[in-house]
């Protein structure tokens, strides 16, 4: 083989390999810095995810190839990100079986063990919503149901002086009113004509799994060891020996400062 040919071949190989290494290092830097301020991380049971992990405690969980089963109230997991972000849009795919309420919390204060809890599933509200017997109004994250069409807007209802015993609330604070709460102990009262909640009814898929989306502000959340701590709360599983929730996917879409915002360009 001529020496010139060998040298030119060697140079081509060298150029290709070094370019490949540079591209790989560039890719790693991009993944760590996230200069566009947006990244998506997945958890799927059976796959080892560095980003969404540490499901605990183990005695409240059953891990299978297709899903992770929550068997007890309060299960924790981490969202590990290479840098800090401002906001997360969490999407969960789950099957609640017979559970009444499922909520997800984000750790805000480690010392006080304080979580910001948001609902993902409320069987009572879902039933009222889907029954067709109740008028439904939605505004942002607020859902308002009324048995008879009395109010034309949520604002009109809030401005009215509706009797407390006719209202039920969930994850909603009506000032100066002690209304019945639609939690795991809720018993339907025939006087209840209005329901107001900070809640988004989850989307039901064909295979009986639900999809819920939640938005959390991460700016004031605890970030320890590159991780944000989350909690899944299922109050119905507290003392129960039966019942479970199957989770088959968690998607975390994070948003943060872009490089332009970082350098104030």
């Amino acid at each position: 083989m001529p020496a010139d040919f060998m040298t030119s071949q060697r140079l081509k190989i060298r150029l290709f390999l070094w370019s490949f290494l540079l591209v790989t290092i560039g890719f790693l830097l991009w993944q760590n810095i996230v200069p566009n301020g947006h990244a998506v991380y997945w958890f799927k049971p059976g796959q080892n995810s560095w980003f969404i992990n540490s499901f605990e405690p183990k005695d409240r969980l059953k891990q299978a190839q297709q899903e992770i089963t929550v068997k007890g109230d309060l299960v924790y997991f981490n969202l590990k990100t290479p840098r800090a972000f401002d906001r997360v849009k969490l999407t969960l795919e789950y099957e609640p079986e017979d559970e009444l309420i499922v909520e997800v919390g984000l750790l805000r204060n480690k010392d006080l063990w304080r979580y910001e809890i948001k609902p993902i599933y409320n069987k009572f509200i879902n039933q009222f919503y889907q029954s067709g017997d109740w008028g439904v109004m939605e505004s942002g994250n607020t859902i308002f149901l009324q048995r008879q069409e009395t109010y034309s807007s949520i604002k009109q209802f809030l401005d009215s002086n509706q009797a407390t015993e006719t209202i039920a609330v969930y994850n909603y604070n009506l000032p100066n009113k002690q209304c019945q709460k639609i939690d795991e102990t809720f018993l339907f009262n025939k006087q209840t004509n209005y329901i107001i909640a900070n809640y988004q009814v989850p989307k039901l898929l064909a295979d009986n799994y639900y999809v819920s989306q939640l938005d959390f502000d991460l700016k004031s959340a605890e970030r320890d060891n590159q991780s944000y701590k989350f909690m899944i709360r299922v109050p119905g599983l507290k003392d129960s020996q039966t019942g479970e929730i199957k989770i088959r996917a968690i998607k975390a879409e994070v948003f943060g400062k872009t490089w332009r915002q970082f350098f104030k360009l």
Partner: peptide
């Protein structure tokens, strides 16, 4: 320098 900066991606 930063644990977890390589192996989760590569």
């Amino acid at each position: 320098i930063k644990p977890g900066s390589v192996w989760p991606f590569l």
